[in-house]
Simulated assay, not measured.
Amino acid sequence: MERRIHEIPLKNGRTARIYQGAFGSGEHETTKACIAHLERMELSGKKMLDVGCGTGILGICASLLGAGSVVGYDVSFDACATAKLCNELNNIDNNHIVCGFETCVKGTFDIIFANIYYDILTAISDFIYGSLAENGLLVLSGVPVEEHYDIRRHYMKYGLEVLDLQIHEDYCTVLFSKGRLAH
């Protein structure tokens, strides 16, 4: 079966190519918001974590935009297999895919993206906070609009500062910083 390929043009003139086969084709409002955040960030030499990576779209975009290294993990074997194929399609070798839960990921990251369900964002918040380097940036997306206050309050209890809140049609995207402003 031939898979459809989605092309996502990036601000630096490069194009991410993503196979259909898991969440993350670049068409959903939350994915578009995350890519827009990536395009505004200084990624050169930075370590990024993509929580619930799906097709690996955010890691691939980060790599194409200059990130030093990316780790993406997902609990779905099919998503991880698709992400590895997407890495090959884009000639990406610094987007490392881990199939498993957050306990399979160690280390700290300059930037973390989590475009996943609200209940998971709250359930693994200790892991996300502990994995975010001092002065790091965190982008949470996939949060239903009606839950944006609760997710902001939940993460602010760690001392994270809200830098940006975007309300989309059905979901919201929140950008946090840990420590002093990281841009």
Rank of each mutant, 00 (worst) to 15 (best):
G68I: 06
E29S: 06
Y171K: 09
E42F: 13
Y117H: 15
E147M: 15
F113K: 01
E29W: 06
Y19H: 07
G52S: 06
T108L: 11
A79R: 02
K178V: 07
L43H: 01
I5A: 08
Y155K: 02
I116Q: 01
K46M: 06
C104T: 13
H96V: 14
S177V: 10
F127P: 07
F101V: 15
A133D: 09
E169I: 14
I5G: 06
V70H: 06
K11N: 10
L140W: 01
A62W: 01
T30H: 01
G136H: 03
P144G: 05
A36S: 13
V139H: 02
A36W: 10
S131W: 04
E161F: 13
L175H: 00
M48E: 01
T108P: 05
T30Q: 06
A22C: 09
S63R: 05
A83Q: 03
K157H: 12
I60R: 01
M48H: 02
A62P: 03
N94S: 13
L121T: 02
V51L: 04
C172G: 08
D74L: 08
N115I: 10
R40L: 14
R3K: 13
Y129G: 03
K106G: 14
T122Y: 10
Y149H: 12
M1N: 13
E27P: 08
T31V: 09
S76C: 09
H168M: 15
H183S: 12
R180L: 15
I18V: 11
C172D: 01
N91M: 15
A62D: 04
L175Y: 00
D74K: 06
K157I: 13
I167G: 03
T82F: 09
E88M: 14
G45Y: 07
L38E: 01
L65C: 00
L175S: 02
I5L: 08
Q20A: 15
V70R: 03
T82G: 07
L10N: 03
S141W: 00
F113R: 00
L163C: 11
T30K: 05
Y19Q: 05
S69Q: 15
A79V: 07
I128T: 08
T82N: 13
V75D: 10
K157N: 12
C61M: 05
C104M: 14
D170S: 14
R17W: 09
S44F: 14
T55I: 06
E7Q: 13
I151D: 00
I35R: 00
A16E: 04
D170C: 13
E169M: 13
G24C: 08
K32N: 03
E146A: 13
V75F: 10
A62G: 08
Y155G: 01
S177A: 11
K32E: 07
M156K: 12
G159I: 05
P144I: 07
Y129W: 12
L49Y: 03
D164M: 11
C172P: 04
N12H: 03
D78V: 15
L132I: 08
G136Y: 04
I92W: 03
R14Q: 12
T55E: 03
L140E: 03
R152I: 15
F101C: 15
V143H: 01
S76K: 05
A33T: 00
G142W: 01
A36R: 11
P9Y: 09
G179P: 04
L85C: 12
A36H: 10
L181I: 15
E88K: 14
A36N: 10
I5V: 14
L121Y: 02
G21I: 07
